[in-house]
Design a protein around this nucleic acid. Structure first.
Lengths: 172, 172
DNA sequence: CGCAAATAGTTGTTACAGAAACAATCGTAG
DNA sequence: CTACGATTGTTTCTGTAACAACTATTTGCG
């Protein structure tokens, strides 16, 4: 295993810390919540990548791409919308789509009314692969979330995170 | 602004979705919580990067490195522990430390009792820079977390996330 | 003691993501 | 109807991270 996203918990330095001025620092409720958020995110991403690689599937960004396009009407999305949904830049998306197109999972289609826009459209092979990958991802998420969280807690978590995201976007 | 981590919310495709079989998919409480987690994480990272860049400071990984080392006893950490704390690979850490060393923020020191291990040790310049950067980061986190969350809610969020992280690591 | 296995860190290769510059198209004001 | 600005997507360049192979040191065991 190359990744080091688990290891329950080398964070001992913090615990033993306090060698100097202990003036609150970022170690208030927000800093702690942010630390937990990053570590949890990294842990789950690592787990998903590991599971996909173990099943000899493409990496996580491919799954997210396929899943996003698959949920769109007509199984296609504008490049710009897709970049926004996946939270990557347009330049990065262009190349990511290139790879999936080369793999035969997506194809580029074009808009007749606005010849600037191009769509990433799901191919049958892409849909098939998605359906193969989905249970692997869902199973991993189930382990991560469901094993120690009730449905209500998971829902509350989602709601709280969504509120934080809005704060982070809106400015305040 | 190049990044696209806000835009309240191009997710309309999902809302209008349901063009085919609507068999639950990953769209249960776990999938939603995972989606919220990734989006919130991306939004905050984007916000922090933007704020640091705007103040003409080094990128977020440098801050996290400095902050982590600064909290360790004697302001130094073993390379391996640091990689674990920052959730990156050891190879990646070597080069990240290289950059900070070249910038005069860290220095490498060595262990006398075990000549395999080397430490990343905070330099005065690193400590100074950290203290300059800290308020920027703390302010952004405050906006993200404090503006719509009570302290109790932030703490509950941290606790819940920590539980999820343990699930993701432990296996179940 | 001596050698195999484990551990710690570095190095080289490759792939991916962001920023900025670019090209093409659209919309609209004059 | 033309010209300018805005939007959409691609391309180029650069920096960073992962992965794997490698070196060096320590540990354990016959």
């Amino acid at each position: 295993m190359a990744r080091t996203f688990c290891e329950d918990e080398g964070m001992t330095p913090q615990a033993t810390a306090a060698p100097r001025d202990q003036r609150a620092k970022a170690r208030n409720a927000h800093g702690d919540a942010w630390g937990a958020l990053t570590r949890t995110h990294a842990a789950i991403v690592g787990r998903l990548q590991e599971a996909l690689a173990a099943a000899d599937f493409p990496p996580l960004p491919w799954y997210e791409m396929l899943a996003t396009v698959a949920e769109a009407p007509e199984q296609r999305m504008k490049m710009g919308d897709l970049a926004e949904a996946l939270v990557i830049t347009r330049g990065g998306l262009t190349k990511l789509v290139d790879r999936l197109v080369k793999a035969g999972l997506l194809e580029r289609t074009f808009c007749e009314t606005d010849r600037r826009v191009s769509y990433a459209t799901l191919c049958p092979a892409g849909r098939d692969l998605l359906e193969e990958m989905r249970p692997v991802v869902v199973a991993e998420l189930k382990v991560a979330f469901a094993s120690r969280l009730s449905t209500a807690e998971a829902d509350a978590l989602r709601e709280t995170l969504e509120r934080v995201r809005v704060s982070a976007c809106g400015g305040q």
